[in-house]
């Protein structure tokens, strides 16, 4: 999951060098060993609306995949941030917390959310979408689904 490859998919700039959670739209980028950085992909950000508030666990916190590690709030929406992997949250992005607009402006870079030490990366990454073609196919289907639901601007 290293490299720096991007592709435009259904109008969205998408990083192909990382893995994605199919339902929560969290991206996972391996930093070093079991240390991963996580963030929200373009659909996760866009379907939330204009993000105004962001909260992320600060102290080291042990979580299982799917458990809440934070929350975000937009003008008309509030919802949990769910861990894409099991492990320990070891850092949060203070810059994004201070300026949630970073999630809109730099989704795969400065707009990351947290870092975790993954507990079972090898096994749990099987649950994520990885590889350029798989990512693109999954993302296209999600864009189509959200357009049908009417949550994306025309």
């Amino acid at each position: 999951m290293t490299g720096d490859t991007y592709r435009i998919v259904r109008g969205y700039r998408l990083a192909l060098d990382r893995a994605y959670d199919r339902e929560t739209h969290m991206w996972v980028s391996v930093q070093d060993g079991d240390r991963v950085r996580i963030g929200l992909d373009p659909l996760g950000v866009e379907t939330t609306g204009s993000i105004a508030q962001l909260a992320v666990l600060r102290s080291p916190s042990s979580l299982r995949r799917g458990e809440q590690f934070g929350s975000l709030e937009a003008e008309k929406f509030v919802g949990p941030l769910l861990a894409p992997l099991s492990g320990v949250v070891v850092a949060c992005n203070d810059a994004a917390i201070a300026d949630p607009g970073l999630l809109h402006r730099d989704r795969f870079g400065e707009g990351w959310l947290a870092e975790m030490d993954a507990r079972d990366l090898a096994a749990e990454r099987q649950e994520l979408v990885e590889g350029a073609e798989e990512i693109v196919a999954w993302f296209e289907s999600k864009v189509d689904e959200y357009r049908l639901r009417g949550v994306l601007a025309e």
Binding site: G49, S50, I51, Q53, V56, R58, G70, H104
Partner: peptide, 14 residues
């Protein structure tokens, strides 16, 4: 647990 959160503010301008 301890959460780091944004200060209350109007929605981010984009």
């Amino acid at each position: 647990t301890d959460m780091a959160g944004s200060k209350s503010r109007p929605p981010a301008r984009r």
